[in-house]
Simulated assay, not measured.
Amino acid sequence: MTTNALSFPMPNALGSIDQYISAANRFPMLTEEQELSLARRLKQNNDLEAARALVLSHLRLVVSIARNYLGYGLPHADLIQEGNVGLMKAVKRFDPDRGVRLVSFAMHWIKAEIHEYILRNWRLVKIATTKAQRKLFFNLRSMRSQNGEAPHNLTQDEASDIAQKLGVKTEEVFEMESRFAGGDVSLEGSGDDEDEHRIAPLAWLADSAPEPSEELATAQHERLQDEGLRNALASLDERSRAIVQRRWLIEDGELAATLHELAAEYGVSAERIRQIEVKAMQKMRGLLSAN
């Protein structure tokens, strides 16, 4: 069988996850010799066609691993996609001279990417942030799923038994179990119920009044802006200053002067007024940015 990746069919525009899985399972599996040859081509020559062949021949592995994580309620296609990212990372880091098949090496990378995706998306707020918490998260769900237990509060004996098997403290098992049980709460409420929005967390958590530090910072910023603007205007010649003021610093309710109106007043062309305005604005920007 040829190892030319160009002979591998691509599952483009398949339209459904079932069609994708079917196509992935049709990709030829590589013999050990073919795998080593492709891996060496990739490592020694950065041969992207070899990398493509290695990835495509292991898509079925990603599909198989992703199927084990369907219990988290996340889209199967997304789990497969994240697993494919892990597979590509594994192919990039695979060393053909270590005496290990790619399938064994890639499993770790595939699972790692799927785990990271689940932890990012299973809850709006992360429930496992440390390495130990992540391990407990997946092992605890796996153990309870394998035991066929309906959702219920763990007893002291159950938690102690799980803690002993996983090598963690009983308190840590209870804490993770409470995180499982806790659902997400919308800050803004949901639906069109006005009462629900009134009692939503966003209605009573936020304080609309600015903090004193924010008020001081705002006042200081405005003072510096006004002072800087006055200094920048003072640096212009009289004509340039008048043009900028009548074009940009008008009072509320007034209309800005047009280029043609100013041109008629100063006896020059509208283009000349535009050039004066551009030059003056550039000078002012330089002075303001330096402050």
Rank of each mutant, 00 (worst) to 15 (best):
M10A: 10
G15S: 05
S16A: 05
I17A: 01
S22P: 00
A23G: 02
N25V: 04
Q34T: 07
L38T: 03
R41P: 06
L42N: 09
N45G: 03
L48K: 13
A50P: 04
L56I: 03
L59H: 08
L61I: 08
V62W: 03
V63Y: 02
I65G: 07
N68G: 07
Y69F: 13
Y72H: 05
L79D: 03
E82K: 14
E82V: 10
G83H: 02
L87E: 02
M88A: 15
A90Q: 13
R93S: 15
D97R: 09
V100Q: 06
V100A: 11
V103S: 14
A106N: 09
A112G: 10
H115D: 14
Y117R: 00
I118C: 06
A128P: 13
A128W: 00
A132T: 11
A132P: 10
Q133K: 01
F138W: 04
R141C: 08
S142L: 09
M143T: 12
N147V: 05
N153Y: 15
S160D: 07
K165N: 06
V173H: 07
R179I: 10
F180S: 14
A181P: 02
G182F: 08
G182M: 15
D184M: 01
D193E: 10
E194L: 11
E194T: 09
E196F: 08
W204A: 09
D207F: 12
S208N: 13
A219W: 07
Q220C: 10
L229A: 08
A232R: 05
L233N: 03
E238L: 09
S240D: 15
I243E: 06
R246K: 11
E251Y: 12
E254F: 11
A257H: 04
A257E: 08
L259I: 09
Y266W: 13
Y266N: 04
V268A: 07
V268E: 10
R274T: 05
E277D: 15
A280Y: 03
M281S: 13
M281G: 08
M284L: 00
M284D: 04
M284Q: 01
G286K: 10
S289N: 10
